[in-house]
Design a protein around this nucleic acid. Structure first.
Lengths: 268, 268
DNA sequence: GTGCATTTGTCCGTATGTATG
DNA sequence: ACATACATACGGACAAATGCA
């Protein structure tokens, strides 16, 4: 057999990862199938691929970081994570669902129309950290009100959604109540004289934090590749009144924007 | 010494990764400093953290996947990757750089205004793969023309940019020439009667592919956390005429969108 | 409820390949 | 040619979590 460092022996973990990724995509280890989405043990899989258990663990670790499987220590094995693909459309915040007839977009909207709910994780007042404070134009040490939520789609925790507002704007309002504010943050801010007129979205790749792993029901130490979507909302006087941080883990979540050429246009 | 599996010994790799991440952010191992961005060897760092060389290698591997350091085998060690943060503004494609006075946005635009160039990696005609073909509305087996580019910012390969157009639209045009088309793809398509009027952007987290690693000057086997930005462009008849795939690796790259409340509005 | 077997999580030390200088 | 140092993978070991008898 090819020993450890021989040329053909290299990248065995990577090729096994690719093969497992493909098998998961193809539908082996299906949740509805008898296996309940269970993967064989690292030892068994390792024999299949001619890998040691440690190396097979690395394969599984790769899959976990890609968000494809979920693992727990103990006699439980790895299971395929039942993500439902979520299409996130930031522009719906402003557009009152105008009738789009564009095939791609309507198609995506339909896919996103699946039922979903959300859970409030916490509502607190705390000193703004450097990044959030700068975006909200706060002085150092000034406080923000924070609502941390987790979105549940098809009974699976799918994304976290943290909303930051300067405390002076919402202190004493029902936005601070630890229940769901049915009419939404934007409506509350509008009632307080800060109707959202403009928003700037910043998107970056990063890994989930340990805190987010808990909220998303992932193993605490297993980070997952994610997109961070940081939105700064401005009112009619163009003052920043809200920062929202969404964390969308896993490869199945998609953020979609539509752009159009401005109407008053004379040809370039 | 705390032996292998003792409670305090757990997550030592993770905490070392976090510490190294912070040290890099804080500016240890600076490129301008005497070390030229060189990290100490895995052995030396391992002694510092009380980790074996193998475990320290895993720490460095984590940092590499986050895009913070770059490694090459051989007697070279790991060096801090000199990413220059790039702000990517898809909306500039349509907006003729109208005078924005918004602090956040202008600030970001300024940061993005750094000089950059691009290199053509290849210009080919090939059968469309399933995903691209579906977006362009092609029949199976139909061909697309592909321009693969790499953007260079401050002499560092920063992002890849692949443009797909149905071959029948641009066959024989100078878009197929393997040089830079100074006036840009959009202008060429406009000349051919397919002026871009609308675009749909889809953003997803994923890892760089082996091919992209080569183009970005990364080690072939070391994937990096990235955002994939897939744009479908539609002409005035709302037919899809172009798909662009951008891969933005590393935590320093940011994609920014601005959203505004539509002008004709009567209160919700 | 308790104890045991299973399985993952984590890390060590070692060995070989390979690229760099 | 040689030393250095990363890349990869092995076997072994212990802790912790889980499931089951």
């Amino acid at each position: 057999m090819t020993t450890m460092g021989s040329p053909e022996a290299k990248w065995r973990v990577d090729t096994a990862t690719a093969d497992m990724r493909e098998r998961i995509r193809a539908g082996d280890f299906r949740p509805d199938d008898g296996s309940q989405g269970q993967l064989p043990t690292a030892n068994t899989l390792g024999e299949h691929y001619g890998l040691s258990r440690v190396s097979m663990n690395n394969v599984i670790k790769n899959l976990r970081e890609e968000g494809l499987v979920e693992t727990r220590s103990g006699n439980r094995g790895a299971i395929v994570r039942p993500w439902t693909p979520v299409i996130f459309l930031p522009q719906q915040e402003f557009e009152a669902s105008a009738g789009h007839n564009a095939d791609l977009l309507t198609q995506l909207v339909e896919a996103a129309a699946r039922g979903g709910s959300s859970r409030i994780d916490s509502v607190t007042a705390e000193p703004a950290d450097e990044r959030i404070g700068a975006k909200l134009g706060l002085r150092p040490g000034e406080h923000v009100a924070v609502r941390r939520r987790t979105s549940i789609v098809d009974e699976v925790a799918t994304l976290t959604d943290d909303s930051y507002v300067p405390l002076r704007l919402v202190d004493g309002s029902d936005w601070m109540d630890p229940g769901n504010v049915a009419r939404g943050t934007n409506q509350v801010l509008a009632e307080l004289g800060h109707k959202l007129e403009r928003a700037v979205d910043e998107l970056r790749p990063r890994y989930t934090t340990a805190e987010e792993n808990v909220r998303l029901g992932l193993s605490p130490s297993g980070s997952v590749n994610a997109i961070e979507l940081l939105t700064t909302g401005f009112d009619s006087e163009d003052l920043p009144v809200q920062v929202t941080m969404l964390t969308l883990p896993g490869p199945r979540n998609t953020v979609v924007y539509e752009r159009r050429r401005p109407l008053p246009e004379a040809g370039e």
